[in-house]
Computed example of a mutant assay.
Amino acid sequence: MIRTLIAAAMATLFAAGTAGAQDFPNRPVTLVIPFSAGGSTDLVGRLIAERMSAELGQPVVVENKGGAGGNLGAAQVAKATPDGYTILMGTVATHALNPTLYKKMPYDPVTSFAPVSLLVIVPNVLVVHPDFPAKTTEELIALLKKDPDKYSYASSGNGTPLHLSGELFKSMAGVDMQHIPYQGAGPALIDVLSGQVPIMFDNLPSSTGHIKSGKLRALGVTTAKRAPSFPDLPAIAEAVPGYETYTWNAVFAPAGTPPEVVAKLNAAANKALEDPKVQARLADFSAVSVGSTPEELGEHVKKEIAKWAPIVKASGAQLD
């Protein structure tokens, strides 16, 4: 009798879960962006969230939760109810850099999440305040070698892709400058725009408008080749052979999210990337639209961890 009751209860729960997955979504979905507003991840996230809302028939509400290099926001999603109503805009930081950078992680980048879709690959860019004397990467290198203790550069935080872009540049160019970490790209950008810090490695999307308006001077992009939206802007690799960094954005759900729900989120994300208006906006700041299956994103994360782990270790960056 007891076995029969247990079996019946389990069947009821399974049926309820299946029905819930089939009805998904019947209320707003929260997209957690693990960085402050104004940065590249925020720009891409809000653009995709708006289009996903139309596809899902429910609002996709953006929630910025910055801190600990993206770990706070990512951990919030990892611990959320796995029903698809709380999802993450993951990045190379949350899923490839932080596992090596931090001594203790509040989540596992592979087992704590259900991959949904890789969205875009984003170039970084080396920018300076317009009053800064260097107008090219070569001139910056010469300036830094002449006065190695004089200049500083801003980034979105210790161990972030932008910080590591700067450290890799210092190492490969044979120069030195002080690193000034911020709690996100947005606050760092404010101080560079005001002239408080003269140099910054930023994501190209968040600096594009300021570069075009003349509020920032771009010296080079961090990808191996020039960005399509700035064909006249050299790649840093043209002055420092072999130099290359970039970031990426992807959607993740908590581990244990029903496959049917993951499939609906994946379809909405990929449909959003196909929208001509979204593609045009992404092209404006040279974010390369990718799209993927959940399985492809899972493999991408594993490859990125293997790629970045030795680079993080070589940088000497380590956080508690």
Rank of each mutant, 00 (worst) to 15 (best):
T100Q: 11
L204G: 01
K65D: 12
R46P: 04
I199S: 01
G256T: 12
K212A: 14
Y243Q: 04
V262K: 02
M105L: 14
S286P: 04
L168M: 13
A227M: 05
A8P: 03
N71P: 00
S289K: 12
Y102C: 08
M89G: 02
K135F: 05
A74K: 06
V110W: 00
G195N: 11
V240H: 12
L273T: 13
T81N: 10
A263H: 01
R281A: 15
L144K: 08
A154E: 04
G20N: 14
G174N: 07
T223K: 12
L219S: 12
P187I: 13
V288P: 00
N158G: 09
K277A: 14
L162K: 05
P276G: 08
P294M: 11
A142Q: 11
Y243K: 03
T222V: 01
M52Y: 08
L119E: 03
P187V: 13
G57Y: 14
D284W: 09
A287P: 03
L43M: 13
N124Q: 10
G70V: 07
A309S: 11
G209V: 15
L204W: 03
A255P: 05
L189P: 04
P59R: 05
V120W: 02
T91P: 00
K303D: 03
V32Y: 01
A280P: 00
V122M: 09
S165H: 09
P205L: 10
K307E: 00
F14D: 07
N270K: 13
L282F: 06
K65R: 15
V62F: 07
A15R: 12
F252T: 06
A235P: 04
Q183M: 10
G84T: 09
F132Q: 08
M177R: 08
L56N: 09
K264Q: 14
S315P: 00
D83C: 08
E63P: 06
R226I: 10
T223H: 07
T4D: 12
T18F: 13
D23M: 15
K271I: 05
L297N: 03
N64Y: 10
I48D: 03
P228H: 09
A235S: 15
